[in-house]
Design a protein around this nucleic acid. Sequence first.
DNA 1: GTTGATGATTCCTG
DNA 2: CAGGAATCATCAAC
Length: 409
Amino acid sequence: MLQPQQPITGNGPSASRGLGLNVHPGMHPLNPVHPAGLEGIENGHDNRRDIKDILQQIMTITDQSLDEAQAKKHALNCHRMKPALFSVLCEIKEKTGLSMRNAQEEEPPDPQLVRLDNMLLAEGVAGPEKGGGAAAAVSAATSSGGMSPDSSLGHSDYKSKLSQIRNIYHTELEKYEQACSEFTTHVMNLLREQSRTRPVSPREIERMVAIIHRKFSSIQSQLKQSTCEAVMILRSRFLDARRKRRNFSKQATEGLNEYFYSHLSNPYPSEEAKEELAKQCSITMSQVSNWFGNKRIRYKRNIGKFQEEANLYAMKTALGATQSEESPHTPNSTGSGSFSLSGSADCFLGVPPVNGEQPPYHMGAQDAQSRFSERLYSTRESRTNGNWQEQNTPPSATSPGSDHSDNSD
DNA sequence: GTTGATGATTCCTG
DNA sequence: CAGGAATCATCAAC
């Protein structure tokens, strides 16, 4: 794409300055490396003086004013020695292999940059605008058990902020790309201009372009890093579940409590039961696990405090069970309104007798209870169950009058 | 602002 | 890896 020997037409200011001839190692004026370039010249002594003069002019060209330099440059380009000198320069360059120095440097992709790219893509900042972006990040955070669905008001805020970051990122990226492209064009023009007075190979230009791109790439990676940091801050601020804790809905709490107290002998829902509870309470399975974990430990810590609650739910379940007995068409009715669980039919039947007492509610449905228990309790629970039963004697749930709870703690 | 309740997280254990 | 225990952070009632 370059024609180094083409006639001079351009006379831009850039060409008159950095001609770059004073850095060439093989350019000693009195000792041309290859005499072929001076073919046809008969008087060697005069020639040497000519060359000396020309080079002297070239060396001092940067000290001159623009117009003067332009004029000198034009004079030099028109000089009869110019083609010969140019040819010498070309040969010197070829011999020394200057233009090829470091030409082979093929840098592997920067792992740090790749990481940043991947992260921005995952966060929805880079890549396609809709679908995989903020929504994906939010849904990921939610499904990991972070937030309850009613915290979605925070999501829209998060999305809008993420969108802002995305916009800024793309604007800046565009700016950088434009600047890079402009600068590259400028440098290429400069080199083309210079190629009229010194040999500049296409490969050299490519190398220069690569250098420029590397420089801009490092700026870009800084931009990417800053963007990643901004997204991280945003995430921690908006998606940190602790900050955005929301109480479960009344219905959800009721459902969980119902299950807890109706399985007081073994309040360890199986995966299946957790899934069902999660579905019915509109929370995630990990939230169900959290809830039961908290409930068990808090109940155990202060059984007396939960006595009333236990009684309440015992009443409810008992009422539900009675109703279900009376009207077999509604077997799953638990007296808790819209909330019902398939496993709640074993209301308090799993509660072991306290000091040999009979369970207060014996519906004659022990078989059903066993079946439900078998289905709902995982193998893991059977391990922990014994422990729970031994250590946590449930209160006489349905007889508040005979409260003999130990009010532990 | 204080305080108790509560959902989530972290660390540890079996 | 599930669960216990401790703790944190926020909510909500006062």
